[in-house]
Structure formats: C-alpha cells, structure tokens
C-alpha cells in the first residue's frame, strides 16, 4: 500500500513536471505592468482593475499583475511608454478608442502598429440618452427637436476629439442637425450633467449611465450598433438593454463600438503573446468576468491574432476618415 502510494506520487510528480512546459512555453518571471492610458476610475481603468482582481482571486498568474495609470496627453503618455519598452514582455496595455484618436488629434509620434496586438476582450456600446423629463420618446423626435433648435441643444461627452465627439459629428453629418458639443473629464460626470439638465443628451456607455436609468432619471433612445444588445434581464420598468432599438432602425445610420483590447510592447515573441492570449481566455471564462460584462452590457466579441490586427486596421482607417471629415486632425 505504502509502496503504491509512493509510486503513484512519483508518477504524478513526473506527470505534473512534464506537463508544465507543454502547456505554457513562456511565463512572466517578474511582475507584469498593466498600463491604463486613462485616469483612475474611468471605464478602461475599471476593466483593468477587474481583470487584476480576477487574476488574483482565481490565481491565474504566478507573478502579480500591477495596474499603472498613464493618462497624460489623452493617454499618449501610456502609449509612448509601451512603445519605448520594445522587447519587454512584462508590460501590457489596455486600449480604448484613444488608441486611434490621440495620435490623430495631437500628432504625437505613435501608431497602433508600434505595438503587438494580443486580444480583443470586448466592445463597448454607445447609447443615445436624454433626460427622462424631456418629451422625446424616440431618436427621431429628438433629432427633429435638435434641428428645430438650430444648434443650441447641448451634447455632453467625454473628452475632446474623442469617441463621443466623433459620434456627435457623425450624427450631425447623417441628419443635418447641429449640436453644441461640451467636453467633460469623465463619463460619470457627463451622466450626472444630463440628470441635472445642464446638457440635453449624451452618448454614454451603458455602464456610465445605467445607475441613472434605473433611477428613472434618463431615457435611452437608441444604440449605435448593428443589432440590439443581447441582455434581456429587465433593468427598470420592465425594460431591458435588449429593448433599446438600434439607431439604424430609427433612421440614424451610425454604428460605433469602442475597442477594449490588449496590446503588448513592440517585438514580443510569439510564445509570449500566446501566454497572454491564454491568460485572457481564462479570465473570460470566470463568472466574475461574465457578471462584469452583463453589468456594462458589453458586446463580448473576442478576437486574437490576424483577425484582431485586421479589425484594428479597419477601425484605424475609419477613424482617420471620420476625424478628417470633422476637421479633428492635428494641424502640424
């Protein structure tokens, strides 16, 4: 009996030892820096810290994952930092649309091609919101009102020459209506400005405005996606995310989704990229991640490798066109 146990133990040991190199070719040997090119408390920061929490809680990495915010120059600080860390596999970055907009608007020497794409984690939706006390029931009503007002109705959004303003300009182009765009620092602040009637509409992400929606303070008009969101759990008064119509069905033919993806520093080896892809696959399988996706009504598309790179390239072209048309490109 004793002997059997010893043999079994030895066999198990060899099995375990033999199994490790087969599963993961490369592993971090030092804490991994997780750069967030945005401030603490924002959407990207929340996602990064959720991932950090999931990784810690489920023991997905042997080395700690350390979140670092580098928000200077609309995230330019973070991008330039990762760009300068070529060949360092212990640095990853989470991106939002400022991956495209910041270099275009500020002219800093950076392009996503400087980085190594790892994986797309999710896409963030955009919804057109108005104050619940206002009479606009549909996107059509509201656009009509905007046209009537002749440019005095205010659209609040996060940042200048970034995703919210791009959508606003796209709406102006599509409908001929004119908005006054007012930039704020963060999405939560924008949502509250809408509740306080300091702006007339916003294009907040679901997670930024859901609390106010549940409180009956704001009303969603339409979502800027090809199909309605997939979450049918009721949020307020029997309405769910799924019940929000697409903007296209309302005659507002605009689609915009924001990338929540991971990149590595330039010149990353294949097995290093592979390691992180596997890691994020494991993260996505945890119930905590699924809960987080549901809270923020995210579009859970997952992409890696060539597909991902291709998607990013198409998006970059689109942003360049959109921003050129809007006159947002840096002058120099």
């Amino acid at each position: 009996m004793k002997r059997f146990v010893r043999v079994a133990f030895a066999a198990g040991l060899t099995l375990a030892v033999g199994a490790i190199p087969a599963v993961a070719g490369w592993e971090p040997v030092r804490p991994v820096e997780f750069i967030v090119p945005a401030g603490t408390g924002g959407g990207a920061d929340q996602m990064a810290r959720t991932i950090q929490g999931i990784v810690t809680k489920h023991n997905l990495m042997k080395q700690p994952l350390v979140v670092i915010n580098k928000s200077g120059g609309a995230g330019g600080e973070g991008f330039l930092d990762v760009k300068a860390s070529a060949g360092n596999p212990h640095k990853i970055i989470i991106t939002l649309s400022n991956l495209f907009t910041t270099p275009l608007a500020t002219g800093i020497p950076f392009s996503w091609k400087d980085l190594t794409p790892v994986a797309m984690l999710a896409l963030d939706e955009f919804v057109l919101w108005v104050n619940a006390d206002k009479p606009y029931a549909t996107a059509k009503d509201y656009i009509e009102a905007v046209k009537q007002a002749g440019g005095t109705l205010k659209m609040g959004g996060t940042g200048s020459k970034q995703e919210d303003q791009i959508i606003t300009v796209a709406m102006e182009k599509a409908t001929g209506a004119k908005f006054t765009y007012i930039p704020y620092k963060g999405g939560g602040e924008v949502a509250v400005q809408l509740v306080g009637n300091h702006v007339d509409s916003t294009v907040n992400n679901p997670i930024e405005a859901v609390a106010q929606w549940r409180g009956g303070k704001v009303r969603p008009l339409c979502v800027f996606d090809a199909k309605p969101m997939g979450y049918d759990e009721p949020i307020t008064e029997g309405k769910a995310w799924k019940d929000i119509p697409t903007c296209k069905s309302q005659g507002l033919d605009i689609e915009y989704l924001m990338l929540r993806g991971i990149f590595m520093a330039p010149r990353a080896a294949k097995d290093q990229v592979e390691y992180y892809v596997e890691l994020f696959k494991k993260v996505r399988e945890t119930p905590d991640w699924q809960e987080f996706m549901k809270t923020g009504a995210f579009n859970t598309t997952f992409m890696t490798g060539a597909d991902y790179a291709k998607w990013v390239e198409t998006e970059e072209k689109r942003h360049e066109t959109l921003m050129k048309e809007a006159g947002f490109l840096a002058s120099n």
Binding site: G39, G41, Q46, G188, V210, A211, Q212, R214, G215
Partner: peptide
C-alpha cells in the same frame, strides 16, 4: 447617491462599487 465622484479617491471607490455589482445612484 448620484454616481458622480467628489474626489479622485471617490472615483476609485466608485469603480470598486461597480465591480462588486453595486450600482451607485438613486436606487442604491
């Protein structure tokens, strides 16, 4: 009560609330 942070630290706490599945706002 509104989901708008009054300080940078409050902003981070707010993120924490969301991660624990608590939605700050009028209904909290």
């Amino acid at each position: 009560s509104l989901g708008v942070p009054g300080s940078p630290t409050a902003a981070v706490l707010l993120g924490g609330l969301l991660i624990w599945g608590l939605q700050p706002g009028p209904m909290l």
